[in-house]
Amino acid sequence: MLKNLYPDSLEASGRYLRIILKELSELKLPYTPIAYSVWYEYASGRNPELHKEIEAARKKKDLINYQTILEWFKHYVSDRPLVVAKEQTRKAENLLNGMTSCLNEAGNRMGRQRDNLKARIEDLNNASNQSDIKNICRDIILETQRIIDGNTEVKKNVHKTISELDALTLELKKLREAAKTDMLTGLLNRRGFEDAMVKPIKEAQAKTTPLTLIIADLDRFKRINDNYGHITGDNVLKLLSRLLQKHIKGKDIAGRFGGEEFIMALPETKMDGGFALAEQIRTSLEKMKWQSKSSGKDIGTITISLGVAQFIPDENLNSLIARADKALYSAKEKGRNRTAIHNGKEVIFP
């Protein structure tokens, strides 16, 4: 995890690990990344709202199952990188404000010191005896040294602040990337996908390049979770994400839109190319043999339904997604395990 997201020592992390494994075992919860993330936030006390929620549930002896964990993750944990990013941004603002104050103070101090030097030089011009000249020269030397020392201190503070700001900038970049990434699959999440689509949409709106969108949804995914457990379900989602990454190329963008729904944008690709890719993904998945790692049971064939739409003039991302989603819905209605396209007027099955 990122240093500023979970800055615990190895010793503390090991202590939390022992607590988490013990409590997940007692609650008969699966050891998934999501369950671990939720319980880490709870055990470490870093997430007060989540801690309060879990403590209340345990006190009332409410049922805590994997669905509860998923809800807590979505509500309290999934946006944590954004929360930390905001905290880091405030810290950067405080550093800049501190440096500005330091420079202003240094400027005021140097102004006073300059006035003092001018006054002592004037005294030197008016001095009438050797003793006065000696004392004034000593004062000038001391004042000059104070200016040098002050400048050195300002320079050290500025360099320190710049170093801290550089570290914060790097950490903020990592946090923003984490906030746009789906923790389970490593693909872009919905927020990340929408951000990545700004440029392709602008290019498509300018009519400089075609753009095709594919929305895919696993068929009867709930049965997998119900029959083989959420760990197996999570593994299916991870393997599907790898399959999508294997098939996309170049400027293509893939993301997990939520649950068992995935989305792919294909810049510089027309409808026929998008349909061909969707079919490659569908048939590749259909041919795969699946087995539950935990039970060793054969899962059988897993299929997927897909909807494809190409960007049309005067459209935006939301309307393009809506048309692809409508095609997906029709594919589900027609028996699943198929690809439908929306040609701008209606849904058809090539």
Results as ranks from 00 to 15, higher is better:
Met1Gly: 15
Asn4Trp: 13
Tyr6Leu: 15
Pro7Ser: 15
Asp8Val: 09
Ser9Met: 14
Ala12Ser: 14
Gly14Pro: 03
Leu17Ile: 01
Ile20Tyr: 00
Glu23Ser: 12
Tyr31Cys: 12
Pro33Asn: 05
Ile34Thr: 10
Ala35Gln: 06
Ser37Lys: 04
Val38Thr: 02
Trp39Arg: 00
Tyr40Val: 05
Glu41Gly: 10
Gly45Ala: 13
Asn47Pro: 02
Glu53Asn: 07
Leu63Phe: 03
Gln67Ala: 11
Thr68Gly: 06
Leu70Ser: 04
Phe73Ala: 00
Lys74Arg: 06
His75Asp: 00
Pro81Asp: 02
Pro81Asn: 03
Gln88Pro: 00
Gln88Gly: 00
Lys91Gly: 03
Glu93Lys: 13
Asn94Thr: 14
Leu95Thr: 05
Leu96Asp: 11
Leu96His: 13
Leu96Cys: 14
Leu96Lys: 14
Thr100Gly: 09
Asn104Glu: 15
Arg109His: 04
Gly111Ala: 07
Gly111His: 07
Gln113Leu: 09
Asn116Gly: 03
Leu117Glu: 08
Lys118Leu: 12
Lys118Gln: 11
Ala119Cys: 01
Arg120Asp: 08
Glu122Arg: 15
Asp123Ala: 09
Ala127Trp: 10
Asn129Tyr: 04
Asn129Ile: 00
Asn129Lys: 10
Asn129Leu: 01
Gln130Pro: 00
Ser131Glu: 12
Asp132Glu: 09
Ile133Ser: 13
Ile140Asp: 11
Ile140Trp: 07
Gln145Glu: 10
Arg146Pro: 01
Ile148Thr: 13
Glu153Arg: 14
Val154Ile: 05
Val154Gln: 07
Lys160Arg: 15
Ser163Val: 00
Leu165His: 02
Thr169Glu: 15
Thr169Met: 13
Arg176Met: 04
Thr181Gly: 06
Met183Asp: 04
Met183Pro: 01
Leu184Ala: 05
Gly186Ser: 04
Leu187Met: 07
Arg190Phe: 12
Arg191Gly: 10
Phe193His: 04
Met197Phe: 05
Pro200Thr: 05
Pro200Met: 05
Thr209Ile: 00
Thr209Leu: 01
Thr209Gln: 04
Ala216Met: 15
Asp217Phe: 08
Asp217Glu: 12
Asp217Ser: 11
Asp219Trp: 09
Phe221Asn: 06
Lys222Ala: 02
Ile224His: 07
Ile224Asn: 05
Ile224Thr: 08
Asn227Ile: 04
Gly229Ala: 03
His230Arg: 08
Asp234Gln: 09
Lys238Val: 02
Lys238Gln: 04
Leu239Asn: 10
Leu240His: 02
Leu243Glu: 07
Leu243Asp: 02
Gln245Tyr: 02
Lys246Met: 06
His247Val: 07
Lys251Trp: 14
Ile253Val: 14
Ile253Trp: 11
Gly258Thr: 04
Met264Asp: 11
Ala265Asp: 09
Pro267Lys: 08
Pro267Val: 06
Glu268Phe: 09
Met271Ile: 03
Phe275Thr: 05
Leu277Cys: 02
Glu279Pro: 05
Trp290Gly: 01
Trp290Ala: 01
Gln291Gly: 11
Ser292Val: 02
Ser292Lys: 09
Gly300Leu: 00
Ile304Arg: 12
Ser305Glu: 09
Leu306His: 13
Phe311Arg: 06
Asn316Ala: 14
Leu317Ala: 12
Ser319Ala: 14
Ala331Tyr: 07
Ala331Glu: 03
Ala331Leu: 06
Ala331Pro: 08
Ala331His: 06
Lys332Thr: 13
Lys332Trp: 11
Lys334Arg: 12
Gly335Ala: 03
Thr339His: 03
Ala340Pro: 02
Val347Asp: 02
